[in-house]
C-alpha cells in the first residue's frame, strides 16, 4: 500500500516548570506513536484531553518539533519546524490545518474572499482574474454564496465560519488536511452538514484527512482507520469499524461505554480522589 503520511516512534517531551510543591520535571505528551495514512485516506486520532492527540497533529503540521522519531511525507522525512521560508511554503502546499474554532483562526478584519485570495497570491504567480475564479470555485465547493464570501467572520454563523476555514485550507490543494476537533463546537444540526461536506470534499478532491477528535460518533462517520490514544500512547489501532465494533483494549471499551446512546445509563466507576 502506498503511503502519504508516516509516523515512526514519534515522541514529544515537554519540560515542566517547578510549581508550588512540585519540582520541575518532564511531561511525556506523546510516547512512541507510529501509524501510516494512505493518499486520500482518512485516519482519526481519538482520545480524551491529555491523550496527546493534538500534540501529534501539531507535530505533523510542523508546529512542534518531535523530541525523537520520524515523520515522513511520501516517504521523505519532514524538515525541522524551523525551516526556511521556501521550505515552509512548500510544506503549506502539502499540509493544511483546520482548527476547532474558526473565529480565532480567521482574521476578524478580513473578508473570507480576501483571506483566500491573500493565500493564493503568496503561493502562486497568478493574475487577479485567475485568483478570483479560484476563490469563487472554492466558496462554491464548501457551500458559501457570494454574499457570505464578501462577509467578515463576525457576520457568519459558526457553521459558515467553519466552511470558510475549510475553503481556505483547501485553497492550495493540499494532500493532507489536519482537522483538529473541527466539528466539535458546532450545533448538532450544523455539525451533520459539515460532516457530510467533509465526506463530499474527500471524494471530489482526493485530499487525505488526519482527523483529531474525542467524539466516537463523529469518528465513525468520517474515518476509515483510527488510532486510540491514552496518556500519550497508542492503545489500539485498526479499521474504524473494527475498533469501534469489537474493541480489544480496556481503555477503548471504557471510552465507548461512556458515550450516551439510547438505553444508556451513566455508571460510577472507581471512586477517584487521585485524578486531580
Amino acid at each position: 500500500m502506498s503511503e502519504l503520511l508516516g509516523l515512526e516512534n514519534l515522541r514529544k517531551v515537554f519540560p515542566v516548570r517547578a510549581a508550588a510543591g512540585e519540582p520541575a520535571g518532564e511531561l511525556v505528551a506523546v510516547d512512541d506513536v507510529s501509524f501510516t495514512l494512505p493518499p486520500g485516506g482518512s485516519l482519526a486520532v481519538v482520545g480524551e484531553s491529555g491523550s496527546g492527540k493534538t500534540t501529534v497533529a501539531r507535530m505533523v503540521a510542523g508546529l512542534e518539533t518531535p523530541t525523537s522519531g520520524r515523520i515522513t511525507l511520501d516517504g521523505e522525512p519532514r524538515e525541522a519546524a524551523r525551516a526556511g521560508r521556501g521550505a515552509r511554503k512548500a510544506r503549506a502546499r502539502q499540509i493544511q490545518m483546520v482548527f476547532q474554532d474558526p473565529y480565532t483562526s480567521l482574521d476578524a478584519k478580513q473578508t473570507i474572499e480576501a483571506a483566500i485570495e491573500e493565500l493564493l497570491r503568496a503561493h502562486f504567480d497568478w493574475d487577479a482574474d485567475r485568483r478570483r475564479e479560484r476563490v469563487a470555485q472554492l466558496l462554491a465547493q464548501v457551500g458559501l454564496d457570494k454574499r457570505q464570501g464578501g462577509a467578515r467572520p463576525r457576520a457568519l454563523s459558526g457553521g459558515q465560519r467553519q466552511r470558510a476555514a475549510i475553503a481556505r485550507a483547501l485553497a492550495l490543494e493540499p494532500r493532507l488536511l489536519i482537522l483538529d476537533e473541527a466539528v466539535a463546537a458546532l450545533d448538532v444540526s450544523v455539525q451533520a452538514q459539515i460532516i457530510n461536506l467533509l465526506a463530499d470534499l474527500r471524494a471530489e478532491t482526493g485530499v487525505a484527512y488526519l482527523f483529531i477528535s474525542h467524539d466516537l460518533g463523529v469518528v465513525r462517520q468520517i474515518s476509515d482507520d483510527c488510532v486510540v490514544m491514552h496518556r500519550g500512547r497508542v492503545v489500539e489501532a485498526g479499521r474504524t469499524t473494527t475498533v469501534l465494533d469489537d474493541p480489544q483494549d480496556p481503555y477503548t471499551r471504557r471510552l465507548l461505554s461512556a458515550v450516551p446512546r439510547p438505553g444508556w445509563v451513566p455508571r460510577r466507576r472507581a471512586t477517584s480522589g487521585a485524578s486531580a
Partner: peptide, 12 residues
C-alpha cells in the same frame, strides 16, 4: 446525531 454503532450519510 452521528451514531457510534452505524455509518450512514447523516440527514442534516
Amino acid at each position: 446525531r452521528p451514531s457510534t454503532v452505524d455509518v450512514k450519510r447523516l440527514w442534516a
